[in-house]
Amino acid sequence: MSGTAVRIGAEPGRLARVVILSVVGLVFLIPIAAMVEFTFRIGLAGKHTVSHWTDLTNPAKADLYSNLVTAIGNSLTLAVVTVAIVLVILLPTMILVEIRFARLRRVLEFVCIIPITVPAIVLVVGLAPIYGVVVTVFGGDIWTLAFAYGITVLPYAYRAIQSNLGAIDVATLSEAARSLGAGWGNVLWHVLLPNLRRGILAASFISVAVVLGEFTIASLLNRVNLQTALLQLSQSDAYAAVIFALLALGVVFLLLLIIGRVSSSRPGTPRSAS
């Protein structure tokens, strides 16, 4: 059941929980609060104004921000395509290896953690000639950058799915469902995926966050995304850049919050009719 708490029988006391969470939470709020304060400042005098915020709707400044609006659209497209790559290419492979090719599990893990040993700034040197080919095949649209981002998120998505996959006994679950007459489609859809929901969700969360925060590959391949556009804007209008950074942060936070709420309110078990 999705609504109940996981009980392991060794939970922290109420006091310990409140102390740990509030101390860490408060420390992490300080930089955000400082950014908010900065957007109301007038120079270094310590006085405050709302003009940096009202400037956002100022038609005279619209041109300054249009590049950023495009960049936000680009980053959202990239996030969607990257999550699709994780769910369509990585997830089925991981389940297949778990069920049919147990000996390949170490190989798959090894491949998936290669992007840790090969950071984005290393990868980008080799990606440049490859994107020369990609552009001739798929065109120069921004979504093609998701091919590189799918690799960047690989270790994180893999770990998220694998810690879920390792905690459930996929072989026994699917054998049980198969012996009860379920086809592989049913096994996947009604048995494995509901059990893997947390891992899939965590993998998607972290993929979206990685893509929206990505700077290195986009900037060195001369593509426009949220981060490169923010850096560009900060050089002409630091206040606007911080405001947009905060807004982006807030929107992404809300987006992930909604995804989290929706998926946890969805019934976690197959309906009795099916």
Binding site: P31, I32, M35, A209, F215, L231, A241, V242
Partner: peptide
């Protein structure tokens, strides 16, 4: 906390520099 962590884990780059310069 899940959502906040996902965001902050990649709160990197330019935004993070802004935040700490302001702090």
């Amino acid at each position: 906390i899940d959502s906040a962590s996902s965001v902050l884990a990649q709160f990197g780059g330019v935004m993070l520099a802004f935040a700490f310069i302001a702090t």
